[in-house]
Design a protein around this nucleic acid. Structure first.
Lengths: 148, 148
DNA sequence: GTTATTGCAAAGGCTTTGCACACTT
DNA sequence: AAGTGTGCAAAGCCTTTGCAATAAC
């Protein structure tokens, strides 16, 4: 998706195209993954120092409603945002090294199917975060402190 | 687990046994499920009006470290606590009516196995929250407002 | 010119922390 | 007596909101 497309998309949805919005969107897209509102603000401020956090939040809200950005809040205090995930995918969050890996949707597909057929529950399995310890950390035995 | 056992357990771990702690633990156990720190405080205050929220949080912290309570934060603003889940289990959270149902661990067992064998990722699948719409709400078409 | 959007400031919610006093051990 | 735990108050964090001025349309 090119920047002009984004401008058109904003206008179509009845929104105005402002430099702040464009820079926020650019920062979100460049991040290619999970960024907090604060991180986006920092990034944007390098070129546009007066941008306010509230503007970032409001823009993220617009983007969520347009379904070109998603939010995931895993209870770490701040929500993480992601630009237009092309398809359902999930995240493996390593509690040891904090790395986040992507997980193909196939891994959750039949879980969803079973919840539906067994329990009639329509699960929203678009965007999942699974915690654990990644392979490297399991082998290294590295640990930066998450236990009692 | 009886109350005396809890007292013993606290003392063994080098903690003191106070009426506040006992009442917080009792409230948590009676809740048989997911309660926020605030809900526990309200409950306890009915018998012990001066208990402070900070005491609740501190006690919950102790209990977490002793591994007799677990916290789950699904990004709703407040974390939910649960007393000593006897075995791995999970939760189906209806985004329409806010009901929380339990989900047997079997539903996630082979997901965990596949993550391990395919990717070497040791997932922590003790306590999962899956969002979606429950059967009743799907049929009723009830909706208290969770869309764009 | 209208209307949406911005920045600032303040408030909101949940959670944590500093401190003197009280209680458990 | 020694040391942890408590209540109170205040701060912390992320996020939301009110408002006048500004910018996009």
């Amino acid at each position: 998706m090119r920047d002009e497309d984004i401008a058109v998309m904003l206008r179509r949805a009845g929104h105005k195209v402002t430099p702040q919005r464009l820079m926020i969107i650019e920062a979100l897209r460049r991040a290619s993954g999970h960024v907090s509102a604060g991180q986006i603000a920092e990034e944007v401020r390098q070129h546009y120092p007066t941008v306010d956090l509230s503007t970032v939040y409001r823009t993220l809200d617009v983007l969520k409603r347009m379904r070109v950005a998603t939010a995931i809040d895993v209870g770490t205090g701040d929500a993480m945002y992601e630009w237009a995930p092309p398809e359902p995918h999930h995240h493996l969050v390593c509690t040891s090294c904090d790395k986040i890996a992507n997980l193909d949707h196939r891994y959750l597909e039949d879980l969803g199917a079973r919840l539906k057929s067994d329990l009639g529950f329509n699960a929203t399995l678009d965007h999942f975060a699974i915690f654990g310890v990644c392979q490297e950390c399991t082998m290294d035995g590295c640990d930066d402190g998450n236990e009692a």
